[in-house]
Amino acid sequence: MGNIKDLIKNVADNNKNIETFAAKVIEINKEEDSQHNTEDAYTIDVMRADGAIIKNVRLKASIQDVEQGIITIPKKDSWVLASIIDGVETRAFISQYSEIERSLIRFKNDQNHFLEIDTDVNKLKVLFKTQKNKDNSILPITYNNIAKIEFIGNEEEPNICTIFYDESGKEISKNSLNINEQNISINEGKTLFVLKDKEAKIIIKDGYETIISDSKTSFKKDDLTFEMDDKFKISASKKNLLTELESLITEISNIVVVQGVGPNVGNLLAIKSNLKNLLKI
């Protein structure tokens, strides 16, 4: 099966005929073992108006070279215009579409760097990647991602996401943004930043967690906590500063001086009351 480019050139050189007819898409032949995406498809099966079925109609010039080119995948049960060169059905290709399910564009350079643009009605993804195994004779060919930009446009949760990867293709940072919140992950998730309506949260793995909102501000590290709203809260090792100070004042209040003169308990109780206005449990 030659490429469409070569076939068309052959038609021009030899004055061959191209037959075009309307047909209904009855099957999308997905690539279950695709090197890129199992939703990829390079051929379809169609049914002509007279009931004849033509299988493996091409969607791109070369179905062997999947690294470059434009692939337009029609919607199943939609109508297309299929063309046959010189009456040979194995040379059939789709020349026009009525409905499109998905569109895919791939670019490749001599350094085996790839740019892939994948889009449907709910998604737009731009992916930069590089070939992992440089020897094309080694199968299957694998890839390392470099960076990705993705827009999910469904009504339930529209989202924009950007991801960067290290030289081995491992995700190192991610920024996800939707109508409700923004999430930033840095250094393989060791630092997280979450921004919601009236609240910001910063989490550093094995470090501090900070929350700033319209109702309170808090800092946490292991079992150490500092919170502030209308009052302060300080605790560590399951001990609370307010309760500890209250206990201290209570103990001091119980002291009886040997000479028979007690401490000024009234002043201690006033301090205790002041602490309650500053601290909370």
Rank of each mutant, 00 (worst) to 15 (best):
G69N: 04
S78Y: 09
A82F: 10
F93V: 03
F93W: 08
I71T: 15
T72K: 13
I94Y: 04
V88D: 12
S95D: 09
V80T: 03
S95G: 05
Q68D: 05
W79K: 14
T90C: 08
E89I: 09
I71N: 12
K75G: 01
E89V: 01
D86E: 11
I94H: 01
I73N: 09
E89C: 03
K75Y: 03
P74M: 06
I84W: 09
S83N: 03
G87R: 07
T72N: 13
Q96V: 00
A92G: 12
Q96P: 01
I70Q: 15
A82H: 02
A92M: 10
I70Y: 14
Q68P: 02
K75Q: 10
S95E: 07
V88W: 02
P74A: 00
A82N: 10
T72F: 09
K76E: 13
D86C: 06
V80M: 03
I85Y: 05
Q96Y: 11
S83D: 06
F93R: 08
T90I: 14
T90L: 11
A92L: 05
I71A: 13
P74N: 01
F93K: 02
Q96L: 09
S78L: 05
D86A: 10
I84M: 15
I85W: 02
S83Q: 06
K76C: 08
Q68A: 09
V88S: 01
A92V: 02
S83F: 04
R91A: 04
I85C: 05
Q96T: 04
R91E: 13
